[in-house]
Design a protein around this nucleic acid. Structure first.
Lengths: 240, 240
DNA sequence: ATAAGGGACATAACAACGTTATGTATAGGC
DNA sequence: GCCTATACATAACGTTGTTATGTCCCTTAT
């Protein structure tokens, strides 16, 4: 094998573990959870299935690492959202970025939330059950961003006896549910879900934690006007 | 084919198809999606795996039928929620019943929303992709109940330029997301998620579609006071 | 410099899964 | 009474994750 240790690797042949993880995420995005197979993955990186066990210990733990990586990327994407001086606009922008990132990586998003168990595989054990709790610490970083944004809205707004963490959990629930239903195709392929559902939903919740109704509505309209266009979103699976 | 009366079937041995479906739902609730295996199911009803293919055509279509049955039960449960003369109270009660039913059948709920693909099985085809779209007509009946409740709130409340279907979709998103996160254990096992998150969330949304804030809050408090107690919810899988 | 040791990997085998092929027995129509 | 079709059991097939085994090559100690 030409992968020398001291020698300079062709940059494409990085750490085999990273190559496996990257290929797994690629397979997931392209073919859904059922494409996450040891043999297919090994063929993708030009190795044998043993590589999965040497570097991860099994498919279950590899999937856990995919979830962790997904949360890391998610947190990074949330951090990149530019902050302005309007807490309400920032909160809505954060929610929109959340939705956009999720719909850019629908399969990964579903897997992150334990939502597509990638197959009740054998082995008898519980290998797959890896709910979100396992890869959670990385997810809490992303959640912390939401809590901060919510806190700013509450502090800037009128009186609100609600705890920021609770309010953030409510907003997270709403956006999470919307994202999953949009990914599942419940809202049709019109592509107007953001303007028709997500932004009004976010507006109601912003008002609920103290934002001025007309101000929140104005922010929502501004964001809607600033979005490129209602583009068709293609699932990795290309269902109907 | 009718269930023979004259034959000596002990009444518990009804239509084999129903026995299979019932056993499959039982297996799902008890052991999660990975317990939905042809061999295990056949053993459960004392038949061979061929029964799955004679009566359903395969595991994929059996799972589709499970989803359909799940939506039917869901719709029935929504219909049973008593309606009063207060549209806001009715809407909140409907949301609570939604959450209660989902947490009574967490595995079934997740499967219904395509959320746990029961394993990317082989066969090469797409057998599993059965998203919600397949079993949707039964689900729309349940959704229609929500639209009706939302419509009553909008009509009874102040001016609201929102379409009832859109408002209902937003509320559905919120409750759906909350339910999934609670099932996934994101809100801890304190059992206070309903009072701390779901009811405030529902209150904000009710206000957002025209309900009077103090009235909505009063309804929420009444419902919270009327609930038995924050009981521990045990997942079928008994994780951690 | 040389030999021992260990990690990474390929190959092959194993158990379990969904599915299919094959055979059999029973119920209903002529 | 025979014929056909349906329901079912049994067994085999292909694919899955996993494990056992062997073989390199690099590292390290002597």
């Amino acid at each position: 094998m030409m992968a020398r240790v001291s020698s300079r690797k062709p940059a494409s042949e990085a750490d085999p573990r990273d190559r496996l993880l990257e290929a797994a995420i690629r397979l997931l995005a392209a073919g859904g959870p059922e494409a996450l197979q040891a043999r297919r993955l090994a063929a993708e990186v030009g190795m044998s299935t043993m590589a999965v066990y040497t570097h991860f210990g099994g498919m279950g733990q590899l999937i856990t690492e995919i979830m962790r990586e997904g949360f890391i990327r998610f947190g990074r994407r949330m951090e990149e959202v530019p902050r302005g001086d309007d807490p309400v606009a920032d909160l809505l922008a954060l929610g929109l970025a959340y939705r956009d990132h999720a719909l850019d990586n629908p399969q990964l998003y579903r897997l992150m939330f334990g939502v597509t168990s990638p197959g009740g595989r054998q082995g008898g054990k519980d290998l797959v059950v890896s709910t979100v709790a396992n890869a959670l610490p990385e997810g809490q970083a992303a959640f912390a961003q939401l809590v901060a944004a919510v806190t700013r809205v509450i502090e800037a707004g009128g009186p609100c006896e609600e705890e920021p963490a609770s309010a953030a959990a409510q907003i997270w629930s709403a956006v999470h549910g919307y994202v999953l239903l949009e990914i599942a195709g419940f809202f049709g392929d019109d592509g107007d879900g953001v303007e028709r559902l997500l932004l009004p939903l976010g507006t109601k919740l912003a008002v609920g934690i103290g934002a001025a109704p007309e101000h929140a509505a104005r922010c929502a309209h501004l964001i809607a006007a600033g979005r490129p266009k209602p583009e068709r979103v293609t699932d990795g699976r290309a269902r109907h």
